[in-house]
């Protein structure tokens, strides 16, 4: 996998159309806010039946925050439709990235998230580091050796110096 280099100065700015990031983001946030206000709050925030003042309700602040998000999302949606933003140079940095690169990054995250207790901190650290080195096309063998050394050193630091009992891995027990 080859790293793709880019010169930011060469990128020229241009405007988006009506379906630009701001209008899409505004619409998404508005939908999330509606879902929150009309489904999550009534069903997942319990309210005692003996409230003297509605402002003391456990629902009060979440409702205020939800309405704030909804109102501002609509503002953002309208602003996006009326005044489409410009493409920025940084956006060009994100196009044309090899799929394997971010797939390996996702795999590294998945190892940490789902196999941390089963494989243990050291094994997970080794696998994830090696995946990430591969993702960025590291070619030096000594760097891959670091991928073995660092998880061991850092885990021992956490366990023996900071007294954090990191998992050793249930499959090794």
């Amino acid at each position: 996998m080859k790293n793709v280099e880019i010169d930011i100065a060469e990128i020229q700015e241009r405007y988006y159309g009506r379906f630009n990031p701001n209008s899409i983001l505004g619409a998404t946030f508005a939908l999330v806010a509606i879902l929150f206000l009309y489904y999550l709050v009534p069903n997942y925030i319990e309210e005692p039946g003996y409230l003297k003042n509605p402002m003391l309700s456990p629902r009060f602040i979440p409702l205020v925050a939800g309405w704030l998000v909804l109102t501002l999302s609509i503002v953002m949606l309208i602003e996006g439709l009326l005044r489409p933003p410009k493409h920025t140079a940084s956006e060009e940095l994100h196009s044309g990235i090899p799929k394997l690169r971010w797939a390996l990054m996702m795999a590294a995250c998945a190892i940490y998230m789902f196999l941390f207790e089963q494989l243990g901190a050291i094994t997970c650290g080794i696998f994830a580091s090696l995946f990430l080195f591969l993702a960025s096309s590291v070619r030096h063998v000594w760097v891959y050796l670091l991928g073995f050394a660092f998880p061991v050193v850092v885990s021992l630091l956490f366990i023996h110096v900071l007294n954090v009992p990191l998992p050793v891995g249930t499959i090794w027990e």
Partner: peptide, 11 residues
């Protein structure tokens, strides 16, 4: 971290 693995390299 996410940004690095989803971006091109800037010299």
């Amino acid at each position: 971290v996410f940004e690095f693995y989803t971006s091109k390299v800037v010299p």
